[in-house]
Design a binder for these strands. Sequence first.
DNA 1: CTGTTAGCGCTTTCAC
DNA 2: GTGAAAGCGCTAACAG
Lengths: 354, 354
Amino acid sequence: MAQDSAGTPSPARRTTIRDVAAAAGVSIATVSRILGGTYPSSPATRSRVMRAVHDLDYVVNAHARALSGATSKSIAIVLNSVVSPYYAHVAQGVQTEAAQRDRLCLIGTTGGSAERELATVRLMRQESADAVILVGNVIADDSYRSRMAEYAHALAASGSRLVLCGRPPLGPDVPAVVVEFDNTGGAHAVTSHLLSAGHRRILYVGHRPGYSTSEGRITGYRDALAAFGVPHDPALELDTASLARADGYRVMKRYLAGSTDFTAVFGANDQIAAGVRQALVEKGLRVPDDVSLVGYDDLPPAEDLGLTTVHVPHEELGRTAVRLALERESDDPAEPGHVVLGTHIVVRDSVRRI
Amino acid sequence: MAQDSAGTPSPARRTTIRDVAAAAGVSIATVSRILGGTYPSSPATRSRVMRAVHDLDYVVNAHARALSGATSKSIAIVLNSVVSPYYAHVAQGVQTEAAQRDRLCLIGTTGGSAERELATVRLMRQESADAVILVGNVIADDSYRSRMAEYAHALAASGSRLVLCGRPPLGPDVPAVVVEFDNTGGAHAVTSHLLSAGHRRILYVGHRPGYSTSEGRITGYRDALAAFGVPHDPALELDTASLARADGYRVMKRYLAGSTDFTAVFGANDQIAAGVRQALVEKGLRVPDDVSLVGYDDLPPAEDLGLTTVHVPHEELGRTAVRLALERESDDPAEPGHVVLGTHIVVRDSVRRI
DNA sequence: CTGTTAGCGCTTTCAC
DNA sequence: GTGAAAGCGCTAACAG
């Protein structure tokens, strides 16, 4: 009797190219060529092969294909978390662009831990991803810089590349491409918007010293103030530990207990602005009647709150990251590989002229 | 002169296990075993190998490893989009649990297109993912059922498995596991909450006939009404095309033009509720003073709006999906593989007793 | 304990 | 046009 005839169903074995070849009565080389596309073949053979493929519901083994030299096709994205709208939108952009270029998307989250980031990047290296895209805000200290340089070189050494999103560039000797937003410009624009409406005492809530994004935004704020000849008052700049709504609420509440010497608030992002708004409302101050409020990012809950804010093209960031990573493959490596995406202000209903 | 000595940098070749073996002066088998862990080896050899691995910054080639039989380690998740908070939270859960089990997470979005779903599932098959997790709301028609059965069998045939999240089960002959929420129970609970507060004319906004989730929720609504002896009035059930905020707004606005014969609104989800709220406010009706409002999901913007809603453990859904998929590997296949996750009501400040 | 060797499934020269 | 055969990098029997 035939082997494997007994009751135990043989543990699922994937149908291989060999099965297809046998079914079509051709060699595996022929099957490979026909499936590969660009290759001459007789219509008769071709249809027999295709029929076998269909009947057997054959799909290639991506691992075998990758191993045998065919360029692998995957983009890796590494971020803090997927639930934050900021990251989610960037991830969506990455995924969309990757799919359009017929590439698989590998995803890993780090929860902000450098250790998990390292592990994740290593994992992506194992998978030989075409590119590894790192997203997110970070303190650009020496430890960060050397870690990134390490990633960049390791990836470059195996023909992959590192893309940094919303993070500061690393220097010319590091083989990484950077895509970021114009934080300073956007912050300058909204601050000017407030200043034009007559506001002079503008609270900045949610600064996080050291974080490049934060530094960029507060610089725009200060520059705009200076441009309008408004003296800089450090007491109006409130730091927070995170950019979560709760922090905006907490810090604003505490400040309100001491002083109300301001007419407008600039939240470092929309979440902070939402928290600020809550604190104001609880204090009996209405937006925009009593206090004007602006945010940054144009993500939920900006629209729900009718918040004037700065629109940031998050999804475009993701797409650009993929595009850059892939296009630079054939490019000359002399190019800087640093792109800054513009932002624009979105006027809703949270600012009042005084 | 040596080959490859000229200017052109040889196209990045990844360092292989052979390089490590050579550097450490051992065979590749030894390297493989030492890196594999569970295997005896002399400390001396071991340290030499580890040193070489470190010096060369070697990482295994996941494709080669997968090809040579070592069980691949990846979980695929397929969803409409990552930017919707609903999907984002589920994805986060999947990713977290996958990482904990030391597995890579592949992600694909379909934008709701069946065609792209098919393509994505095929892609995941090529990658030989341990499991393919399909998330999201869907009309459970025959076309859907046969498509899922096809996926399930194809995946099962190659030792993988299909997991359906928030979708109806397929029947006992289809090798798929299902994880969903108790939509009916949650809807029953919030509706009862409104009824207990004295409301009798309760508008249900956002029904989508045919969608299993929607059917479950409206059933809970109707059952609760019946339990309180309130007659069912079909005119109070408003359909929408999607569950987007804009649809809630539009439908509510239209309804308000004709009638205001209700004291409470149940939004099919929080987004719908947010739109409803906007329409109410524009009409001069305040929440909860004039109209009570509840939602479903407990996702943003529920908290911002102080919305009483039903908390749904989205992240847990993702984790459970991974757990089920992986644990059933060794399990007996007789088990149904159908899990229903419970929900609970979250009382905030959008319901008033009358 | 360590080395040799045979594949895993596929692509790709090289012959025919 | 098509087939035969040589690897891709790794793991897992087999020897030693």
